[in-house]
Nucleic acid binder design. Structure first.
Lengths: 164, 164
DNA sequence: GCATTCATACTCGGATATACTCTGTCCGAGTTCTGCAGG
DNA sequence: CCTGCAGAACTCGGACAGAGTATATCCGAGTATGAATGC
């Protein structure tokens, strides 16, 4: 029941990509977040397969969000990395043993599984209610708008940060 | 983001234990559910550590629920097996890279982590709202009361089932 | 001066090792029941 | 007939291997840029 660490990276990358108007290559994303370039590339590939980002090849290539940040939910990102399969997988053990459940009863999903699926639905609904733009807005409201303004400058100028 | 298969076994075992008035040994539980004896024992140990069941040693020993079934939530069982740590673990990558978050901003949890924690809370609330007794009641209402009556008979008589 | 060609440097994408956790198993410590001997 | 004791069988508990997945990495295919060349 542990989520992949790549989810955290992917969400933060989407946040940063929402601040960029030009394609951002993987090395730049990795440098900004201080994580492994090659492993981050793997997760970006998954985001690409899920259709959340578009890859541009070539010298000025990189990744760009395919949709506006307010149309990408956190759930989209999580499912792109973790896969859309529910956490609980019913193995139908009710059909095993000396007193298996009747075929008539098995027309409905196992009662245990239904409880788990309901919880999974609540979890997904919670994540689906928050977009990348919402997260950006929350952080800006709390820490000030200059937070992402600096990120935008860093993306545009390269590594010539003003904080040195 | 996959849940251990042992969770399913543990919940079904709690359901069966709620129907027993005498201690039920692991081999009996494993036979009823058609699963591995030794591996199931491992999960029962975890339930014992969590205080959900009490182990009785000796010839007539076995496991008994420590609380009534209507005071044991599905969340209790899931946490006993999976551990009470949240699925998402924030590694604070916002503090990495050339533009780390300010210490003042870090007094609050990371915005991404808060979204994940909120979803985790929704998931837990959903599971905490359902007790083992609720699951039993639902299945009885749908499939008839004889469903668990047979299980009770099987537990009392041994393996002399009437379905042969 | 301008169009074309070519080499280059940079990008993404998939195929490849390693570490860790989940799955599955085994044997030992402890307890209770049963049978038997003695009073 | 009752009591005490010894043996055995059964129970749980923790320590021990194997498989699958997450983690981390590398190299190859493809493309836009930029310079050099010929007209």
């Amino acid at each position: 029941m542990k989520m992949s660490a790549g989810v955290e990276w992917a969400v933060h990358c989407c946040i940063l990509l929402s601040q960029a108007d030009e394609p951002v290559p993987v090395p730049r994303l990795a440098e900004f977040h201080g994580v492994s370039r090659t492993y981050l590339a793997k997760h970006l590939q998954q985001l690409s397969r899920a259709g959340l980002v578009t890859a541009t090849e070539g010298r000025t290539g990189g990744y760009v969000l395919t949709r506006p940040a307010d149309e990408i939910t956190v759930l989209d990102v999580v499912l792109a990395i973790e896969g859309d399969e529910p956490a609980f997988r019913c193995t139908e053990i009710r059909q095993n043993g000396p007193l298996p459940a009747s075929p008539q009863a098995c027309r409905r999903a196992c009662g245990v599984a239904r409880v788990m699926y309901a919880a999974d639905h609540a979890w997904r609904s919670s994540l689906a209610g928050v977009t990348i733009a919402d997260v950006v807005g929350t952080v800006e409201r709390e820490n000030g708008a200059q937070t992402f303004a600096r990120a935008r400058d860093w993306l545009a100028t390269g590594s010539a940060g003003t904080t040195a």
